[in-house]
Design a protein around this nucleic acid. Structure first.
Length: 360
DNA sequence: AAGACGGGGGT
DNA sequence: ACCCCAGTCTT
């Protein structure tokens, strides 16, 4: 592989990527934009998220928080409502914290050098490089999923790309490829190239400008690269939600920071590691239940590391709600329930429930 | 070095 | 059912 790490070869690849990009421009709201705040927002939203999925959230976000000060002055709960359904909710909480740090420590001026940007919560090497290059023309190369795939194929790296040593090698190669005279254009180009030309499945090798430079193509190994380590099987968790209400109020609670969906709200949760019948659960529930609704709702959700099977049972309470207050549950008007951010399974439940209870 | 963290879309 | 996605943080 070493013989391909020469200037002439790397230069040809660099020029090929940039020429391709000139011929295949991509138009997105955050492109041709030098505002570090807007770039930051778009990059955080797009972490592990497809452009098509993130775009509507970006538009909604910028409408509600046009400036960094708007974000810093918001509440975390309102921000979570904007983020609802997008996943990886830690991103939103980190953004909120970072916005307030920028206001306090940088006088609301977005930091303008790589190491300061990298210090921000939720900003790693990829996002720092993206902001530094797009907003400030600083020569830091972006290494995202697209770049990892493209480089591992170009240089026929057969070892797992999620191995730290391989990852390091990819970052070295990417740095050598970077056009330091125009890092913003190059970074955009290499990501676009990976996303559109060097796709994960069915890459456009038959009309690829880098075909003869691509070691994977030359060795007929494109479909074997990038290699990944084996993944562990997902565990299934069984969530049994009681949906307590009394008069016009629901009782909900914010989830802790040590589990999935932290910062989102939920109802009264009893969790098991296996399927359980409600008849076994209800007698042991510590709630002053007056009446149990007949309607039961079941949902299944696949997450990246676990599978959630959730069941919902609505219950009417009698007067004594001290148990709920002790456990940090708060009451909210039933018609205001949609002002709070919920995980997808609860969102699905509420959508079905709307029909039944005619909420809103 | 490995695990955790969401949800949607493609095959 | 499995893979991937404009990754980052924690242990």
């Amino acid at each position: 592989m070493g013989r391909f790490k020469n200037t002439k070869y790397l230069n040809a690849i660099q020029k090929g990527i940039m020429a391709w990009s000139s011929e295949n421009p991509r138009h997105l709201p955050w492109k041709d934009n030098r505002d570090p705040y807007q770039i930051w927002v778009s990059e955080i939203i797009l972490q592990q998220t497809r452009v098509e999925q993130g775009l509507p959230y970006y538009l909604k976000f910028m409408e509600r928080y046009p400036t960094l000060l708007d974000l810093a002055n918001s509440t975390e709960d309102e921000l979570m409502k904007i983020w609802e359904g997008l996943g990886y909710y830690r991103r939103a909480r980190h953004m909120h914290q970072s916005a307030q740090i920028i206001v306090q420590q940088y006088d609301a001026i977005f930091p303008q050098n790589y190491s300061d940007i990298l210090q921000l919560k939720g900003v790693g090497s990829y996002t720092a490089a993206a902001i530094a290059s797009f907003a400030f023309d600083l020569p830091y190369v972006v290494v995202d999923g697209n770049v990892i795939r493209l480089i591992s194929r170009l240089f026929a790296l057969v070892d797992p790309v999620d191995d730290p040593s391989v990852r390091k090698e990819i970052e070295n190669l990417a740095s050598m490829l970077l056009d330091k005279t125009d890092p913003a254009f190059f970074n955009q180009a290499i990501m676009d190239f990976g996303a559109i030309q060097c796709k994960p499945v069915h890459p456009e090798c038959n009309h690829c400008p880098l075909q003869e430079k691509c070691q994977a193509f030359q060795k007929d190994m494109v479909n074997l690269i990038p290699a990944k380590k084996e993944k562990k099987p997902r565990k299934t968790r069984f969530f049994y939600y009681l949906v307590p209400y009394k008069d016009e109020f629901f009782y909900i609670r914010k989830r802790s920071t040590t589990d999935i969906w932290s910062g989102l709200f939920e109802f009264y949760l009893i969790e098991f590691s296996e399927e359980v019948d409600w008849s076994k659960i209800l007698p042991n529930v510590d709630l002053p239940i007056k009446r149990v609704h007949r309607q039961q709702n079941k949902y299944k959700q696949q997450l990246s590391h676990q599978i959630i099977q959730a069941e919902f049972l609505t219950v009417e309470l009698i007067d004594d709600i001290s148990i709920l207050e002790r456990d940090k549950y708060t009451r909210v008007k039933r018609k205001k329930i949609r002002n709070f951010a919920f995980p997808k399974v609860i969102d699905c439940f509420l959508k079905d429930k709307d029909v039944i209870l005619n909420l809103h």
